[in-house]
Each structure stands twice: as C-alpha cells, then as structure tokens.
Write a protein that binds this DNA or RNA. Structure first.
Lengths: 171, 171
DNA sequence: TAGGTTTGTTTCAAACTTGAACCAAGCCCG
DNA sequence: CGGGCTTGGTTCAAGTTTGAAACAAACCTA
C-alpha cells in the first residue's frame, strides 16, 4: 500500500505541535532548574509522591504514572535520594519491591517550588488558551494517550488494560 | 499576590497533555530509531534541510526553525555528518558561518524513512483525532508557541520579532 | 582604524536518557 | 520440592542534552 502523506492541515498542526511542545517543555525545565534545581520530570516525581497515600509509591507504579521507563526512574530517584528529597524503603510484602517515599524535606521543597511552577504553567499555557481550548486540549491529549497505552507502543503482549494488576502500594 | 492554583479542569488537561506528549515522542523516537537509526530530532534536521532552497541552511537558522539550542544542533550535526547524511560547508558571505547541506545519501535516507515515519504519526496522532480536532490542535499549539517565542522564554533583550534579521541562506 | 561589543559557532564537563543485560524474588506446575 | 518462566528493580555503556565558557569574525563608534 502506498503511503498516505499528511494533508497540509495535518502538516501545519504537526509542526505547530512539535514546536509548541519543545518550547513549552524547555521553558518549564528552565524555570524549575532555576528555582528548584531540578528538571521537570524530577519535580513531577515529587509531586506524584506527595499526592499518593502516605506519600509513597512503588517504583513500578511511579514509572507507570509518569509514563517513563523504570530505568529512567531509577536514575532520577537515585539523584533525588542523594539530595534527601525522598528515601527508598523496602517493601514488606514483596521483597523484590522498593518504595520511594517523600521525605519532609522533599515535601518542603515541593511547597517552596510549587507556586513558581504553577505560575509558569499558567502564563505559558493556560493564560493563552480559552476555557474551551482547555477542554479541547484535554480531549485531544486523552485520545492520543489512550491510543499509545493500549497497543504496541511498548509491546508487552499481555499488558491488556482489563487485566491491570496494579499491585497495592504496600501502604 | 497569592498563587492561583490550577482548576480541576486545568489539572486534568495538564496531566493529559504531559502524558500524551511523553508517550508520543517516545513512540516516534522508537520507531525512527528502529527504522532509521536516529532519534526524531535528527530526522527533523534532515527533513527541514530537504525542504530548504538548495537543501542547505545556516546553523543558526536551522536551530531557530527546530526550536533547539545551537549547542544541541552542533552535536546532532556532527553525528549526522559522521554518518555522511549531511556535510558542513563554509559560508562565503560570513566567515563565521557554517552551513549544513544535505547529501544525496541523506536525501535517500529521508526518502527511505519517510513512509514509516508518516505512518507512525498518522496512526498515533491523526487517526485518533477528528478533522475538527486537528484544527484545534493547530490553534492551541500556535497560541502556546507564540507566547513562548516573543517574550522572555529565552531572554535575549534585543531579539524582538519586528527586528528579525534572518540572515540569508547564502545560497 | 583601534578597541570594544555583538554575533555565529564550537567545545567541554556534568547531567540525563536509552536499551540491553543482569540479578533477585515470586510464581507455576509437574 | 525443583526447575523454568515472569516480574521488580538496578546496572552499565553508549548516546544525547545542557549551560557556561571559549573563539573568531563582523560590526560599531569614537
């Protein structure tokens, strides 16, 4: 079958999207690096932890929520642990498991950095969009993410949504 | 002034967006790495070059179109040059300048890789969106990008849009 | 036209990411 | 029980990105 190339509209959308996502991630990374000394992903790790029961989560669950590989998470957590912002704990129920737990220092850092971060997201993203567009963005993103989660994005034959095992947090 | 936190709608949109952009870039990177042996950015460099007059562009212009730093571009171009996919040429009009020129081999590689890449973008992005959503995505992206280009995203006091100097390609 | 500033590009070290390989520990089933 | 397969996590080398510093050529301007 012969390739179906992108229409001009799709071309424009694709390029605009690429540019926007690069610029946005860049701006956010820069702000957080400046004000909190860490890139966006690392901030997100702390943020997700802070909202989890007991402020702790198993590595795999954390990686899944953040949509990153375990390997990448391991590296990040090692750094954050070195900085004292979180601590690794053993999992009582599964001796293979390790749990990332936000420290008080980590929580404090988050509280300190959050306002600046939110301001940035607001001024670069939400201040530019109408309320309607915010809704559209969510739907579009959800559609994309959904497509990428289920099928062969990260090909693991048996990782089917209705069979999620979602191990308990061990909390 | 006290921080204006994100509304629940904004929260959802933000998280969905982060997840989608991570997953999408990941999938595209993986496909291109597999099929063309290079990450998405590197493919984009070749692609932009292929559409430029004489298939060549000055480093700074290239960096500007791709929304990346010159430093990052230098590294990428060095690698691509090593692979024989492009060549660096001196700029006749400005001895500081250097020009990246797509080689025939680079163009051939692009022709070989393009169908697979387009398929991927289509199946992970455009096949999931209605025609309307494609338009919305473009507008949203354009709005974001615009905000990030003009003001202090990359703070260079005199880099004001109406004073763009956009040096000629030396072609 | 010399000297200072700006612009175009590269370099360098430190940080981060990737993917494959590895090592346990759980699980399964004879 | 006792292998063999799966799962949770880390490790390692190679590749990439970052930001600041270095350099050189071009552009003032007095």
């Amino acid at each position: 079958m012969t390739t179906r190339w992108l229409t001009p509209e799709e071309q424009r959308a694709w390029r605009a999207y690429i540019a926007a996502s690069l610029l946005l991630e860049d701006a956010i990374d820069r702000q957080l690096q400046q004000d909190a000394g860490m890139p966006h992903l690392y901030y997100s790790i702390l943020s997700v932890l802070s909202e989890s029961p007991e402020r702790r989560l198993r590595m795999t669950d954390l990686a899944e929520r953040l949509k990153i590989t375990r390997s990448r998470l391991t590296y990040a957590v090692t750094r954050l642990e070195k900085d004292g912002l979180l601590r690794r704990e053993a999992c009582r129920y599964d001796k293979r498991g390790s749990i990332a737990a936000l420290t008080d220092e980590g929580f404090a850092m988050l509280e300190r950095a959050a306002p600046g971060h939110v301001d940035t997201v607001r001024s670069f993203l939400f201040d530019r969009l109408s309320e309607e567009q915010v809704g559209q963005l969510e739907e579009i993103s959800a559609a994309i993410a959904q497509g990428l989660q289920e099928d062969g994005a990260r090909p693991t034959a048996d990782e089917v949504p209705w069979r999620r095992r979602s191990s308990p947090t061990c909390s």
